[in-house]
Design a protein around this nucleic acid. Sequence first.
RNA 1: GCGCCCGUGGCCAAGUCCGGAUAUGGCACCGGCCUCCUAAGCCGGUGAGCGCGGGUUCAAAUCCCGCCGGGCGCGCCA
Length: 621
Amino acid sequence: MVEPDPWGSFRDEAIAWTCEALHAAYGIAEEIDHLVEEPDAELADFAFPCHAFASQAQAAPADIAENLEDALPPTDEMTVRAEGPYLNFDVEPEALVTTTLDSVRERSAGYGELPERGSSVLVEHTSANPTGPLHVGRARNPLLADSIVRLLRAAGHHVVAEYYVNDMGRQAATLVWGAKNVDLRGDAYELDPDEAEAFSFDLLAQPRDAASKRVLDPGPDEAGKLDRLLVQYYQAANRALELHDQGRALPDRDPEDEIADLIQAFEADDEETATEFRQIVTWAMKGIRSSLEDANVHHDNVVFESELVLDGSVERVLADLRELDACQTEDGAEYLDMEQLGVDTDKPQMFITRGDGTTLYGTRDVAYHLDKLERADELVDVLGEDHKLHATEIQAALSALGIEVPLDVVFYNFVSLPEGSMSTRSGRVVYLDDLLEESRTRALAEVRERRGEELSEARMEEIADLVGPAALRFNVVSVQSEKPIEFSWEKALNFEGSTAPFVQYSHARTCGILEKAGLDPGQAPAGDLTALMHDSEIQLVRRLAQLPSLVRECADDRKVHPVTAYAVETAQDLNKFYRDCPVLEAGSPELREARLALVDATRQVLANALALLGIDAPESM
RNA sequence: GCGCCCGUGGCCAAGUCCGGAUAUGGCACCGGCCUCCUAAGCCGGUGAGCGCGGGUUCAAAUCCCGCCGGGCGCGCCA
């Protein structure tokens, strides 16, 4: 049985020894896990700063370090030395190399994965309103969350990724209203001259003309990617609402009322209305899911909020919420008094029904969380930071119902444009599709320039398909999720430095070496590894050893940016090794074999790290 | 106005949760490296003391307080 987590096992050992020595020398018995550091590689693998115990031990930190060193038995796994106030540990190269490379070889694609934890986690993510294509601002959600899902799976959880479709709210209703009432051909409507330019849509008294029919009953080839068409109806509907408010359009109608009527009819399960919503939402979702597939993001399950309303779940939750003392009424609408629930928020009232009796997003989301809870042990929601208040509200509502939900919410900041945040409604957006397409095109140009003479056109296109979307994904996900990102085409399409293409390229190099050695990936012989002694070799192995620990940390903290850093660092270490240590022309057959094993292991680790990011590793590029 | 998040070389990020050894990468810039396993690469160099001001501590980019700048929120929207 190989060690699944080489670095973690050495670290645990260093901690255990330090504890023992601390106890033996000073009678101190304390948890010191958090004190043990991993400083720069030249300094030590693990370090224990002794300052913390100076007063307890009644000794200078440097003396403590000396005493601890003396108290520790020598082993062939790790060396220990006192250096000033630090007790430094170095894993013996031989132990490091054999433990690590054996583990990688044995576990191959599973290297990095941790033992089953037996708990199930339901990760809800993306859940963008089905009103149009995914834009880059929101796309941070699926890109981030899909990697969190992969990390949790690697960490041994059973994970379900779910998309919650808000098909019954005002946004969806606005789109439906638009699809039924707006003609996008845009000629005859009378407006101020400057308005006409901004709003070139024709609002029709008659629903379902040619254009809206196209939405409600599209031809076979339009059904695939209808989100881009639909969003125009959504934008037009919003524009109509705005103009109507200003008294400049639809003087004898009230779009707002008509939208409210749609919601009421849907909640009352009016068949025709339900069909319209379902159809339009399904088309929008088809477009969104196809974009997600292009970005290699997967959901295991899609839940429509209307299901929860129509099957009575929301009604049952509502009944329970009404029982609460905190539930009060204002103008016929019901709300929960947050202060009474002991929650200090910006909004003291959490409305759970409208005056017309229809429910609100928050109410339905409470029901949805209860539903999720029946299907998993732990919940993770990935939400934009604009949902922070909403998240506290539903958690407050849930705990008011006496349900402690093991819910972890991961917030992210939006990707914005230099001129401000992206907005579907206004059309100030960069769509994910366009960016993916652009990235692919750019990648193809790059491959052609570099390898145009050697590779076939088909192969170059394959590579571009792997590299373009990967560059984008890597880029978005390499920044800590709570930091804002300002979008720039230049950065998004950069293929040098800390990027996916650099990591992929390094992976391709390992494959190139193996190929020249006549070996298939994963087939390097398990020879005598003790020949690996060069600093660059050891540093590379050290890096490989760390993947499982990284997975544990990232999965537990639900963060993915350290994985991108790790992938880049591994590639950098590989490139240094590549520079310093000839493989095919190594000095001896033993060394050559050992280096081939290291190359093969690195190939595997790079591929595994990229897999956590939803990125495929090409064998050549 | 109130609440939450962010503020690190010219630019972009890591490090901040759990305070410790000369602050780590990338882009850009300057200078080198393709008779040698793919130059989407490698080596060297210039450049920050971590928004500002206090405080705690043997020790602060990391903790506390105040301020400034940016984002988000404060809907019978989602």
